[in-house]
């Protein structure tokens, strides 16, 4: 095993250990791995399968069912743009169009500089002050095209 595979195995094992004995530990385990590594590396799946007595197909099935889990690294910043009705009522369709154009990517894609990944989300619970955008764990309300551009520019400058 390569040194990176050894390191990965250590992470996976310590995560599984920390959720030992829990009912339905797979979701918390997947979340923890993704929190630590930004994604679920394909090599980690057989490690989880072995340690948790699950088949690789089962783990794949679970990963692909949920929108949150990703098998590949995301950009430095994840932008979740709300596509649901309250935000639509406040112009999120136009904002969505603008965002894709400004970043030059579609949903599920990452900008070539690796700074941004754009994802759709269906409601962020901020529906009185729409449109809503989640940048990593930070929420933004009443987002206009200008506000979007400002946020992007700030993050680009920080880089």
């Amino acid at each position: 095993m390569s040194s990176s595979a050894v390191a990965l195995k250590e992470i996976v094992e310590s995560v599984i250990e920390s959720h030992q004995g829990k009912i339905g530990a797979l979701l918390p385990v997947l979340h923890s791995i993704q929190d630590k590594l930004g994604h679920i590396p394909p090599e980690s799946i057989s490690m989880m399968a072995a340690a948790m007595s699950l088949s690789r197909a089962e783990i794949h099935g679970v990963m692909s069912f949920y929108h949150d889990f990703r098998g590949e690294p995301a950009g430095e910043n994840i932008l979740h743009l709300c596509r649901a009705e309250a935000c639509q009522a406040m112009g999120s369709r136009e904002l969505e169009h603008h965002a894709k154009e400004r970043l030059g990517i579609d949903y599920g894609e990452t900008t070539p500089d690796g700074l941004f990944t754009l994802e759709p989300v269906y409601c962020l619970g901020n529906c009185s002050c729409s449109p809503s955008l989640r940048v990593n764990d930070e929420l933004h309300a009443r987002v206009t095209a200008e506000k979007f551009d400002d946020l992007i520019a700030q993050m680009e400058a920080r880089d």
Binding site: I23, L27, P28, V62, H67, D68
Partner: peptide, 27 residues
């Protein structure tokens, strides 16, 4: 009480789907 976090699936709000999800399965 144990706090569990969903993983972005609307259907997991339906109670039986939620229970499957809590069991670590597809919802």
């Amino acid at each position: 009480i144990d706090l569990r976090i969903g993983a972005g699936a609307y259907i997991c709000g339906e109670e039986t789907s939620l229970l499957d999800s809590l069991e670590g399965k597809r919802g």
